[in-house]
């Protein structure tokens, strides 16, 4: 009981602190804007730990964060192997292939308005479909190893990137294109000097959406069959053995990998589209 009371007290104290902080001038600084959510996150962890300990929640239902942390520390080699299998081999190779293919397709259909008018609605439609469902088919075609996961990821990221790239290539206005025409710039010169740079914010939007999809695709595809390594495999296997602390450890790794991947793409975006209004504060 003392644990529950402690965590409730901690919650109240942290909340009061956050209310104070959010009305002070500190939040206007960059560090302050990080402190408030960090306090909130820590509070969640403390309350989780306190409630699990105080109410004696069994570990097969919800392990406390400390147990998960201990498990992460012990199982680092396994987690790294799973991460390599699912993220580096499956998700990343699929992401590069899928985004590359989508980008090239967008360039290829760029000269044909007819194809664009046909492909855009189809692509928009397909982007809303539950594409993860193709996972069993890909596992059948490409086997249990990471190739099938990469194939699922390719299909999943293809359409969002395609649709965004095509609409990005249409983002220049006629004044700018006329200017290039007065320079008697060729199609390729206009493409590389004007239209691709102007399309970058759109392309990066698609690439950012695709980061999350890639990780989801790679993990869910492992639910349909995988070698005995990989994040999706480990999650299903440990759920079956009721080793929930290991499941949470994998989820923590997946969350970290997802945010880091997204953050990396966002960072590259910031570097490459520094001229765009959304990047200049």
């Amino acid at each position: 009981m003392i644990w529950v009371l402690f965590s409730l007290g901690f919650w109240a104290a942290a909340w009061a602190l956050n209310v104070r902080l959010s009305h002070s001038d500190l939040v206007k600084s960059r560090a302050g804007a990080l402190v408030v959510p960090a306090i909130f996150g820590v509070t969640l962890l403390v309350v989780w730990e306190g409630v699990v300990r105080g109410l004696n929640v069994p570990g097969v239902i919800l392990p406390p964060p400390s147990a998960i942390g201990a498990r992460i520390a012990v199982e680092l080699p396994t987690l790294w192997a799973d991460f390599r299998q699912t993220f580096l081999k499956g998700a990343l190779s699929g992401y590069v292939l899928g985004c590359g293919a989508a980008f090239l397709t967008a360039i290829a259909i760029d000269r044909s308005p007819f194809l664009q008018r046909g492909l855009l609605p189809v692509g928009n439609f397909v982007a809303a479909l539950p594409i993860v469902g193709i996972a069993p088919i890909m596992v059948m075609w490409f086997g249990f190893d990471w190739h099938s996961k990469a194939a699922v990821v390719v299909v999943m990221v293809f359409f969002p990137v395609l649709v965004n790239t095509v609409s990005g290539l249409a983002a220049t206005d006629s004044m700018q294109r006329d200017l290039m025409a007065t320079y008697s710039a060729s199609y390729w010169q206009t493409l590389f000097k004007l239209r691709l740079p102007a399309a970058m914010p759109f392309i990066f939007n698609g690439l950012k959406i695709a980061t999350t999809l890639a990780l989801i695709g790679a993990i869910v595809a492992e639910f349909f069959g995988s070698p005995i390594v990989g994040m999706g495999f480990r999650i299903t296997a440990e759920v079956g053995r009721l080793g929930l602390d290991m499941v949470w450890a994998e989820i923590a790794v997946a969350a970290l990998a997802g945010s880091a991947f997204y953050g990396l793409v966002a960072l590259i975006e910031k570097r490459m589209t520094f001229w765009h209004p959304s990047q200049r504060n």
């Binding site: 997946a254 997802g258 953050g263």
Partner: peptide, 16 residues
């Protein structure tokens, strides 16, 4: 949280 593959917790929720 939008950058996290939330779907990974699906098996755990079902089994728990």
């Amino acid at each position: 949280s939008q950058t996290i593959p939330i779907l990974a917790i699906a098996p755990m929720i079902i089994v728990v």
